[in-house]
Design a protein around this nucleic acid. Structure first.
Lengths: 239, 239
DNA sequence: AAGTGGTCTAGACCACTTG
DNA sequence: AAGTGGTCTAGACCACTTT
């Protein structure tokens, strides 16, 4: 079924295929059983289980012993161990994403950030993000200058910068460290979000690394706390 | 090596064993290779990999292709897909946990919560949580009355209620839904946390379910935002 | 070359759910 | 009884890292 010369592991090809069929609506509610998938794709059951287990970790599928594997009904998994772009997140909330570019260019890094990102200069992109035309968040993103300059040549007024990095610049994003706090918003930003001055926001900092472990983005986002909250699903299994 | 009559799956027994050896310091930095673990415990490699993969998901181990499996250096995984008790969380921060019981007893549920927890009455436990004697959070926990009455007979002034539920009441906790927002604190609670009135807190709501899917706890926690933030590690793999 | 984790197969039996 | 996911084995080859 799959091309054995493809360097992409079978379980990943299978996972993408299942993901696609879910998105296209070819699988409703339930996906075929592990043994059916074995036959359809001509792979072993371990491979099927490997593919499915990742989708379970991602919160896309749920297994029920003796019944089958079901498409998760949690409409939105804001957080499931994987970071996604703001655009995708807004789309998952069934809203229309929008973007307004405030400014971008090479800037010297503020002292309080120098320790965190270990660069003197960075390419800064500051944008307001909208959901159904309502300002939802302010994002300030810092990139290594070489990456930022390439991004600036692309369309940074729409779409997700993660997709641009991955698809246009061939940067393989790997993982991120994130921190959520509650912080007073500045007056400039308050105006952009239509919030009273000195209001508190949900403040997210995200360090994104590529497969080599190099920092490829530092993102600060302030969310309107009236419109946004972080949702999680966690298990007690790890105890 | 393991008792084959034990109904607990081998990979879980192995996982617990590895976890314990890490905690005891018998494994520093690196754990034995998969093939070594196979021989030591007399199980197949799949079983070893199954055990390890869960520990990787939990953020306790990290695999490096060609090098080995290493004990994660992230000293604290505040959030890694598993919820832990506040006590354990404070201990992981290398601080001493403390608790002050504010009040407890059967109460009628406020209207705004009725929809969420689908009970008329609940056993309420409200406590201030300290880290190194400094008030860190206020927790208000709602339990089904039968559970709450049992808990009240135990020591609710120390220790973790999750451990009490699991070990003393034999309730098997399964998973939780959590939501983080930023909220204005009430004047009563502000005093308990030594915060100015109308200050904002990091506000956590947690619904905890047992293996049958029944709600066994609803917990509201307000954290002093000066002292506490949520940390995450997320990957891009799920894309 | 030797050791590590990554991928994959073929097959077995168990436990749970539904007819 | 039949079908599902859960567990487990024994073995193979590949890709990456270190010696």
């Amino acid at each position: 079924m799959f091309n054995p010369n493809n360097p992409v592991p079978l379980h990943i090809q299978l996972r993408k295929s299942i993901e696609k069929k879910i998105k296209l609506g070819l699988f409703k509610e339930k996906i075929p059983s592990e043994r059916e998938l074995m036959e359809t794709y001509d792979v072993s059951r371990s491979t099927v289980r490997e593919a499915i287990s990742q989708l379970v970790i991602d919160g896309i599928l749920e297994k029920k012993h003796g019944k089958g594997t079901f498409i998760s009904k949690h409409p939105i998994h804001y957080w499931s161990g994987n970071f996604i772009s703001t655009t995708e997140m807004i789309e998952r909330m069934q809203m229309t994403p929008g973007t307004k570019l405030i400014r971008h260019g090479i800037e010297t890094i503020p002292d309080e950030l120098k320790e965190a990102i270990e660069m003197d200069n960075a390419y800064l992109i500051k944008r307001v993000r909208y959901a159904n035309e309502v300002p939802l968040a302010i994002e300030t993103q810092y990139y290594p200058v070489t990456i930022g300059l390439q991004l600036a040549n692309l369309d940074i007024n729409h779409g997700t910068l993660y997709d641009l990095m991955e698809n246009e610049l061939s940067i393989q994003l790997n993982e991120a460290d994130e921190r959520i706090t509650s912080q007073k918003i500045g007056s400039e930003d308050a105006e952009l979000l239509n919030l009273p001055v000195d209001c508190y926001t949900l403040h997210l900092e995200r360090f994104v690394y590529d497969v080599s472990g190099d920092l490829v983005e530092y993102c600060i986002a302030d969310y309107n706390p009236e419109l946004y909250s972080f949702h999680f699903k966690s298990s007690r299994a790890g105890k």
